[in-house]
Design a protein around this nucleic acid. Structure first.
Lengths: 152, 152
DNA sequence: CAAGATTGAGTCATCAATCTTA
DNA sequence: TAAGATTGATGACTCAATCTTG
């Protein structure tokens, strides 16, 4: 078995990300729930005390560009899951706030999302494996963005 | 430190994939080399004995849909990096074959690509970490696609 | 009819330019 | 002048429908 392939670990990350994301998206779609990008945005907002974040902050926490987040928030607003309001502290900034309906949609999707992560990913790792993967990849991430922590 | 977050390891995979892919794409672009999707396709073709693969096989090895691969091969063909020919064994199938020019383009991009993987990913892992990540994620992959091996 | 590949049409995502406020 | 956010234009990607051969 060739353990010395310098690209194997990286290829594994690429392939696993692709297969697992597709699987979870399929699960959510089949259950008639919100798409994964909506879930990720709502989850970030729900995870912060006031339920609101500046557009920029939101973009940094998610794997999407600022402009994509802007369009996504427009869609979420149309659905009543998020509200936009100006930041009182800085007139240039916009705060996206999760609504009660947004939290409800998130709550409905959560079981399927968590079950998906479990079934398509966690199930195949021991607790120790998960810890190692988290720690190791956190170090990679630190090199790219020192302030981002994968643990919420 | 909260080691019990059931989503942390998965989030780490998501974020690392995004940050590292973007970094490598930027490196290739700055050096005036082929884009990452072209690299991946050419690499798969170069890695197989005859330098040719059925479109379907190619799609399965890369993180792209069959239709995307079809369009990509059209672009690569226009550039002279790949040739299409019918499979003599099955008239329905098309074989994509890497050309001499394709191998040359791959060879030119390889140093930047490999340096990117090293600088943006491998550098932050010990050899033991890499092995663990590879083995663990290979198990996840096996559950999705039993026949795909991350080691070439 | 099923398998393999390609194409038409539409969605997703980004970059660069623009608008607004600091 | 720069920072924050949005929009116009464009490219990347996918799904479903189609064409061809087994």
């Amino acid at each position: 078995m060739a353990e010395d392939d310098p690209v194997a670990a990286w290829r594994a990350v690429l392939l696993v990300q692709d297969r697992v994301v597709r699987a979870i998206e399929r699960d959510l779609d089949r259950a008639g729930l919100i798409p994964l990008t909506w879930y990720d945005v709502l989850l970030e907002l729900a995870g912060v005390p006031d339920g609101c974040l500046r557009m920029q902050e939101l973009g940094a926490r998610v794997v999407l560009s600022r402009s994509r987040v802007s369009r996504l928030v427009t869609e979420l607003e149309a659905e009543g899951f998020v509200e936009r309001r100006p930041d009182p502290a800085d007139g240039r900034a916009t705060l996206a706030t999760i609504t009660r309906a947004g939290r409800a949609a998130l709550r409905r999707a959560a079981p399927v999302y968590l079950a998906g992560i479990d079934r398509h990913f966690n199930r195949h790792l021991t607790a120790a494996d998960r810890r190692t993967v988290t720690d190791v990849l956190q170090r990679v991430l630190d090199a790219h963005e020192p302030l981002l922590d994968v643990r919420r």
